[in-house]
Design a protein around this nucleic acid. Sequence first.
DNA 1: GTGGAACTTGAAGTCAACTTCATGTCAAGG
DNA 2: CCTTGACATGAAGTTGACTTCAAGTTCCAC
Lengths: 154, 154
Amino acid sequence: MGPDDLLTVGEVAHRSGFATSALRYYERETLISATRTAGGQRRYERSVLRRLAFIRAARNIGLSLEEVREALDTLPGSRTPTKADWARLSRAWSARLDEQIRALRALREGLDSCIGCGCLSLRRCAISNPSDVAGTRGVGAVYLPRRLTDEQRH
Amino acid sequence: MGPDDLLTVGEVAHRSGFATSALRYYERETLISATRTAGGQRRYERSVLRRLAFIRAARNIGLSLEEVREALDTLPGSRTPTKADWARLSRAWSARLDEQIRALRALREGLDSCIGCGCLSLRRCAISNPSDVAGTRGVGAVYLPRRLTDEQRH
DNA sequence: GTGGAACTTGAAGTCAACTTCATGTCAAGG
DNA sequence: CCTTGACATGAAGTTGACTTCAAGTTCCAC
């Protein structure tokens, strides 16, 4: 009956595009799971690949792992998730993307008017206003990612 | 002739919206500078406020401090930057914003088609494809920021 | 001239999402 | 049976952009 259909970390890493270290990290963070061989090595079911695809997609869209976990937790624990399950999760992203695009456009419009006067006024300029749309709390960019066009992978 | 027109860190912090710790950090990173009193306390010229407004705007748009530094370094060292100087720097952002919006729209379209089938296929789905548009190198989201609507400041 | 708020410093801590390292064990082809 | 590549672990390191801390100093209104 074949080799029991289970995948090693190396195989999962190769097929998912994640590093093995990332897979171990995701396991610690309870985003994925695996059975173990008698010797203690991980063995993954095929379904982990779709789960990892979801994780990558979510990360691409900008969700934190915490948010990914929350989403994954809404999957039925009893049965293998269906396409409809995944579609439901993905659908929620659409609104999020719309919102982000909207925010970006607003920022761009503000920028256009700022360029006209070169002001960047602390009080009037929407772009540089600290208490305005952008709540720069926490780490990193508020509106946009870095390195959008930097696609090298090692 | 008035109190010499110089600002303390506290004043600059209050008027710029940055924490004093951030101002010290920016100084270490040579993004801003200050003179000192006989006793060693910082005193800022008013022009630092516009510089900080630029920094905040750039951060809102998603530039790293490194990129901000590069931009600021193109300002003339000899004279006080004019509105035209600031406008020139801001203009460069417009293209960047356009690019980011474009990438977001592409992502959204891909998502729409993915929702249709619920696939998230590792091979076919543009959204979850590891080697596709998103080169998830470095830290954080590739396409989008987190916490876009989370505006609390403390 | 004094009290206390505001300032100074370097060092260390934080956060997310991993990666790297050192050291040791497992699995399977020859 | 043996070798060797793949795997295991916990601890520590990385990055960017700061914040927090401890301990001491300065400024200035009264």
